[in-house]
């Protein structure tokens, strides 16, 4: 048993406890058996860098990231409601290209999901080798790569770099 197996086992057992919340002994025994088998079989496919989970500062940055994300999400919804209910449909759409420095797959996935749920932007495709993201923007303010990067990506990238990279 290596570290990655144990980390996957902890995640799975937490999920099982949530699904069968008022847990009694039978549920717990079945859960431990099944989660142990699954994490023994496929543990090193999901968790590739187990040393990441040791640092405490990553968890603190993650706790700081959640309220920021919820606030941006609420702003995005008010923005969409305004644009939809306006008689002239004030939209100016286009697909722009931005550059990112993040390397690992988890960080790129979280960056794309955050971009999709924040005001006016939606990620269309990722070029992971060169680090380009193609983003559909409902109100294009600037076509240049660097300025679009500053407006869209920069506020999440600083935090996500500290969490996942």
């Amino acid at each position: 048993m290596r570290k990655s197996h144990i980390i996957l086992f902890i995640f799975l057992i937490l999920m099982w406890l949530f699904v069968t919340w008022p847990t009694d002994l039978q549920h717990l025994i079945v859960g431990i058996l099944v989660c142990g088998f699954v994490s023994f079989m496929i543990g090193d496919m999901f968790v590739k860098r187990p040393h990441v989970f040791k640092h405490l500062s990553r968890y603190l940055w993650f706790l700081y990231y959640i309220p920021l994300f919820i606030w941006e999400c609420i702003k995005a919804n008010l923005d969409v409601a305004y644009r939809v209910a306006h008689p002239d449909l004030p939209i100016n759409p286009g697909i722009v290209k931005v550059k990112t420095d993040l390397k690992s797959d988890t960080a790129l996935t979280f960056l794309a999901n955050s971009i999709t749920l924040t005001p006016g932007t939606m990620s269309v495709d990722i070029d992971a080798e060169k680090g380009y993201l193609y983003i559909h923007w409902i109100n294009v303010k600037d076509k240049d790569i660097h300025k679009a990067t500053e407006i869209i990506v920069a506020r999440f990238e600083k935090i996500l770099k500290r969490i996942f990279d």
């Binding site: 999400c73 609420i74 995005a76 919804n77 969409v80 409601a81 644009r83 939809v84 449909l89 939209i91 759409p93 697909i95 999709t116 749920l117 006016g120 939606m122 269309v124 559909h136 409902i138």
Partner: peptide, 16 residues
């Protein structure tokens, strides 16, 4: 008017 704008508006609003 088109697929991408529809996808953007409906995904954000219906998710939240």
């Amino acid at each position: 008017p088109d697929v991408y704008n529809r996808l953007q508006a409906s995904t954000k609003c219906v998710t939240l």
